[in-house]
Simulated scan of single mutants.
Amino acid sequence: MIDYLLNVDYAPFMLSFKLAFITTLILFVLCMPLAWYLSQTKSKFKPILESLCTMPLVVPPTVLGFYLLWGLSHNSPIGQFFENYFGIKLVFNFYGIIIASCIYSLPFMVQPLQSGFESLNKNMLEASYISGKSKFTTVLRVALPNIKPSLLTALIITFAHTVGEFGVVLMIGGSIPNETRVAAIAIYEFVEVLDYKDAHIYSLIMIVMSFLTLLAVYVFNGNQKKDRFF
């Protein structure tokens, strides 16, 4: 068994990790100000923004993937822009699945951060403003350090969700070795050709990774609660 594991092609996993890392980094940068705004605003448009941010959770991956495929193709304005000015084709390309993953994993970053920001003591934020700190400094030095469990949950769940994504990535990227063939797609292809041995190995690796990811979140959050109690 160990010898077999040593000979497994880990390229799809490495590509999945690369995609997940880049997606998580991009979403953190983009979603932190968005989550902060949603947690603080009383605008009548807030429910609309929250619905748009949550839609990737309920829209079927094939539907989302289809419209992303249409929106990123070389015939679309976005696809033409990237192809004409950067020489990048977004469909069946690693750049394309990054965009798709960012959209599909958006709720997993926004919602924990928003919940964390909403749970903050308002007096602490007001004290920061009174002392002359800007909103940016308040978020960076006051808010974020005080929502560590929510921050960790957002980062880890977004990463893990992106690693396991299948439908949207397949629609946008297909299955190009070392380019778009991530671990979930590799498992699907093993099953298609009745290679259940490799499918089992890849699936077990994904299950172990998922369990360890969730375990890390629950252990950290549990320790944070104990620290606050004592």
Rank of each mutant, 00 (worst) to 15 (best):
L64P: 03
C31I: 01
Q114V: 11
G96L: 04
Y104D: 00
G71S: 08
L120D: 06
N121Y: 04
I48S: 04
G116R: 04
P107K: 02
V91W: 06
V59T: 10
N75A: 12
M55H: 03
T62E: 05
F66L: 12
G79V: 09
L64Y: 01
L27N: 10
F82S: 06
T41D: 07
Q40L: 12
M124H: 02
M109L: 05
L30V: 12
L27V: 04
I97N: 08
S76L: 10
S51E: 06
T41N: 09
K42C: 01
S43A: 13
N93F: 06
W36G: 01
T54D: 14
N121M: 01
L30E: 09
P77E: 03
L52C: 13
M109C: 02
G96A: 08
L69Q: 09
S73H: 07
C53Q: 05
F21Q: 02
G79R: 10
T24V: 03
G87S: 06
S105F: 00
F108Q: 06
I99A: 10
H74Q: 14
Q114D: 08
F81Y: 14
L52R: 00
S115M: 13
I99P: 01
L113H: 06
C53A: 14
Q80G: 15
K42R: 14
M55E: 03
I26K: 09
P107N: 01
E50W: 01
I22H: 03
H74E: 15
Q40H: 12
E50V: 07
L57K: 11
F94L: 10
Y85I: 11
M109D: 04
K46R: 15
F28H: 03
L52M: 12
C53M: 15
W70Q: 14
